[in-house]
Amino acid sequence: MRHYSARIIITLKNGVLDPQGKASAGALSGLGFEGVNSVRQGKVMDVELSASDDATARADLAAMCEKLLANTVIEDFEIAALTERQMA
C-alpha cells in the first residue's frame, strides 16, 4: 500500500452567485486595489490517504469529493496535487 498527500481545490461553478467573493472584491477596491474585476471564493482541502497506486488514489479522492467534500450541484473540484510520501 502506498501513502499519498493530496490537495483538493473546490470552487463554485460559473454562474453560481458568490456573495463572499463579491464582498471581497468590493473591500479590495475600497482599500485602493484598482483593477480587481472579480473575486471567487473557494476552499482547499489536504487529504492523506493510502492506496495501491496513483490511479486508485485519484479515483478514491474523486469519490470522496462527489459523495461528501464538494456539493457537486453548485461546486466543481480539482485534485490539484497528488504526491506519494514515505512513511517514517
Rank of each mutant, 00 (worst) to 15 (best):
G26V: 00
G26F: 09
A27W: 06
A27K: 02
L28A: 11
L28S: 03
L28H: 05
L28Q: 02
L28N: 02
L28F: 14
G30S: 11
L31R: 02
L31P: 02
L31G: 04
L31S: 02
L31M: 15
G32F: 09
G32P: 07
G32H: 07
G32Q: 06
G32E: 08
F33M: 10
F33T: 01
F33Q: 04
E34L: 05
E34K: 14
E34W: 02
G35F: 09
G35T: 03
G35Q: 11
G35V: 03
G35C: 08
G35E: 11
V36N: 07
V36L: 12
V36F: 10
V36T: 04
N37M: 10
N37C: 05
N37K: 15
S38L: 05
V39K: 04
V39W: 12
R40K: 15
R40W: 09
Q41A: 13
G42H: 11
G42L: 12
K43Y: 13
K43Q: 10
K43V: 12
K43D: 08
V44F: 12
V44D: 00
M45H: 03
M45S: 05
M45G: 00
M45R: 12
D46Y: 11
D46G: 01
D46Q: 07
E48N: 13
E48Y: 04
L49P: 07
S50H: 06
S50G: 10
S50D: 09
S50C: 13
A51Y: 11
A51D: 05
S52N: 11
S52H: 11
S52W: 01
S52C: 01
D53C: 06
D53R: 07
D54I: 01
D54N: 13
D54H: 11
D54T: 11
D54V: 04
A55H: 14
T56D: 14
T56N: 11
A57Q: 05
A57I: 03
A57N: 03
R58E: 15
R58W: 04
R58L: 13
R58H: 09
A59Y: 03
A59N: 09
A59M: 03
D60F: 06
D60C: 02
D60E: 15
L61I: 05
A62T: 14
A62D: 14
A62E: 15
A63C: 03
A63H: 08
A63T: 12
M64G: 02
M64S: 07
M64P: 00
M64N: 03
M64L: 15
C65M: 06
E66D: 10
E66Y: 01
E66A: 10
E66K: 09
E66F: 02
K67H: 10
K67A: 15
L69R: 00
L69D: 00
L69Q: 00
A70S: 12
A70H: 00
N71C: 05
N71M: 05
T72E: 08
T72L: 07
T72R: 10
V73Y: 06
V73I: 15
V73F: 14
V73L: 15
V73Q: 06
V73A: 14
V73E: 10
I74S: 02
E75M: 11
E75D: 10
D76W: 09
D76M: 01
D76Y: 08
F77G: 01
F77Q: 01
E78Q: 12
I79M: 04
I79D: 06
I79A: 04
A80I: 07
A80D: 13
A81N: 11
L82F: 07
L82V: 04
L82D: 08
L82A: 04
T83H: 07
T83P: 03
